[in-house]
């Protein structure tokens, strides 16, 4: 949050209570407040597509509010009608009537003369894995595949710790150049990659996936992404070429250990991701 912007906006909204503007004023104030907060109020700017979507919804909601009661509607309608019909507003009306098309034309001009932007592709967060996965001559059923080392966690903690340490070695020999020391996807080469490496600390990544999904992504990398798994420029190598199956499972253990997260359990897979 960018409090330097959000606080003044909230203060102005609070201050308006004392000024007691008309319903039209209120609606305009709210709309502008939401717009400013969405567009400038966040430390990390919110993408324009989302701002547009949110403002659309807010517009609908405000329209519903002001028109849901005859009195409120009159408060909004009358000043607008007066502005459009009364003779004394004529100069201003003429000005506005010219200004709006001019603004539209200006925006078209800016749009058409803007420097070209790199095309973007929506990123598929979790592309669908295949039904079966063949790694090192072994075919696994993705439905039932699980980390074979996971059970050691309870049955043989010592062996588990050894595997974990191996995973740590593998991570720092292979993965951290891109995914980073802190697994935030900010390794020393991350700035040179597009799409940027996955941030494992994000609760929306490995924490909501089964280990088999990670195994698939580690083993098959960018080249193994399915057709819809855009943007399909991922630099992620197909690690099956370089790592043994056990090593891949070990590094997956380490990912969860370091980020202090738990993989999604197998049976949860049948639960829908929602509607």
């Amino acid at each position: 949050m960018n409090w330097m912007i959000v606080l003044p906006v909230l203060l102005v909204l609070a201050g308006l209570r004392f000024v007691k503007p008309s319903m039209l004023g209120w609606a305009a104030a709210w709309w502008i407040a939401v717009w400013i907060i969405m567009d400038f109020g966040f430390a990390v700017p919110v993408p324009k597509s989302v701002v547009k979507e949110f403002l659309g919804i807010v517009t609908l909601a405000l329209a519903a509010y002001v028109s849901s009661d005859p009195q409120r509607w009159a408060e909004v309608r009358d000043p607008m009608v007066a502005f459009l019909t009364e003779r004394r507003h004529l100069p201003l009306l003429g000005l506005v009537a010219v200004a709006i098309p001019a603004a539209v034309a200006a925006s078209i001009y800016l749009e058409m003369t803007a420097p070209a932007q790199a095309p973007t592709f929506g990123r598929t967060v979790h592309p669908a894995p295949p039904a079966t996965l063949t790694v090192h001559d072994v075919t696994h059923d993705m439905q039932t595949l699980d980390n074979p080392l996971r059970s050691l966690e309870t049955s043989d903690p010592e062996a588990f710790a050894a595997h974990l340490e191996e995973g740590r070695r593998i991570y720092y020999e292979n993965c951290f150049y891109c995914h980073g020391d802190l697994m935030q996807g900010a390794g020393m080469f991350a700035h040179a990659l597009n799409p940027i490496p996955t941030n494992f600390q994000d609760s929306g990544t490995i924490a909501m996936l089964q280990e088999s999904f990670l195994f698939w992504r580690v083993a098959k990398g960018g080249p193994g992404l399915p057709e819809e798994g855009g943007p399909w420029m991922s630099a992620m190598p197909a690690w099956e070429q370089f790592l043994s199956e056990e090593e891949m499972w070990e590094v997956i253990l380490f990912l969860y250990e370091f980020t202090e997260q738990r993989p999604r359990a197998l049976h949860a897979a049948s639960g829908g991701e929602g509607h």
Partner: peptide
């Protein structure tokens, strides 16, 4: 051309609305 066309359409819509309200 596109600017002129769009501005003209917007202006027309505006005038229609004003005329209708009046």
């Amino acid at each position: 051309p596109k600017m002129a066309k769009t501005a003209a359409i917007v202006l027309l819509v505006e005038l229609l609305i004003i005329a209708w309200v009046r």
